[in-house]
Nucleic acid binder design. Structure first.
Lengths: 188, 188
DNA sequence: TTTCATATCTAAGCGCCGTATAGATGCCAT
DNA sequence: ATGGCATCTATACGGCGCTTAGATATGAAA
């Protein structure tokens, strides 16, 4: 898995073949099959690690903000993670797509990130008895952040980033345009 | 390209190999190379067709709504397209990602869809002189719709769809939670 | 009508991929 | 000392993207 993460960072997701991972780890092409059922299971494990790391980053971001700004901090942390680890982020979503159910650990890590959004909304005014409305708001926030995360790297937006004074400001502006994220404090 | 589209619908994007396309078309594995430089170029062509179709659907959706609801109609049309053509939608974004510049025709088709959002905002009150704000709003709407489009198929949301009385209502609710899309009219 | 360029295709092969099988090696508890 | 277990290798199969070399048809020019 170390080899897989190394390869992913260095060469991107298209270079992440089982054989390449084995080469990087210095073992034969068949060796990984004694640890993972198939390639998908290896990718699942990498993805789960990714959700774990993302969860920690979001936790830290939340701790570094106050009030409703915590929500924006979560969103920014989410998008920055995707920008800094584009290949890993894609593996994480590829693993989640086209699957009836996620592997246990991955579902847990993913849920914990989602629940952080939900909990933050409750802590700052959302009515926890209006379950449907609360979930909708969380899902909308998640969708918005995910959409921005996927597009964050598009060259098309470079002039907007410049006009706003940086990528960070761009993320903040887009998120705050979606009703759910208040404009962030200027620091960090 | 007909063979490619057929395969894409029938077997999903992972089955879309050049050789499979050639088989489906009834020619040798090398034949496609006389029409496309490589596999990516074939996928680009398929993606461009996809943007074209999506643009038409959005145009029709806009024509079928009035006032600010046109914006929601665009969003719903976008998300429904992704739900009905998940494999094609992925090819479209995979072709757009990891590329410095899109092929000419694809960029045009993609821009025309984007401009429809922008224009609709201007037609219904957005100030066209505030260029940056206008673009931000359009980008935010695009991100939100894309995020929802990618997650539309997640099993996790099934209970929400049920609670709201259908997928369509779910899309509408999520989009309207993002500040930019007013709640749609009940029909269609 | 012959000739020749062009478009389209096939056949064969390269190296890489995911995966399966069979067997080797080392370690640890009995 | 022995047997089970975890880990690994060697080898092979078919599919993949792609390349090269050569075949076939078509249509314009001579």
């Amino acid at each position: 898995m170390d080899a897989a993460r190394r390869l992913l960072e260095a060469e991107g997701p298209s270079a992440l073949s089982l054989r390449a991972v084995a080469r990087e780890a210095g073992v034969s092409p068949a060796a990984p099959y004694h640890h993972f059922k198939d390639k998908a299971e290896l990718l699942d494990a990498v993805a789960q690690e990714g959700w774990d790391i993302l969860g920690q980053l979001m936790q830290e971001a939340k701790a570094g903000a106050t009030g409703m700004h915590q929500l924006t901090a979560l969103g920014i942390a989410y998008v920055c993670f995707a920008r800094d680890n584009p290949a890993l982020y894609r593996v994480m979503y590829d693993a989640a797509r086209d699957k009836d159910a996620l592997p246990e650990g991955m579902q847990q890590n993913k849920d914990s990130a989602y629940c952080m959004v939900r909990d933050t909304m409750i802590e700052h005014g959302a009515d926890p008895t209006q379950e449907t409305h609360l979930e909708l708001a969380s899902v909308a926030a998640w969708c918005g952040a995910h959409g921005l995360a996927e597009m964050a790297g598009f060259k098309q937006f470079d002039h907007l980033k410049d006009a706003l004074g940086g990528e960070r400001a761009f993320f903040d502006a887009v998120l705050s345009h979606m009703g759910l994220f208040p404009k962030a404090e200027p620091h960090c």
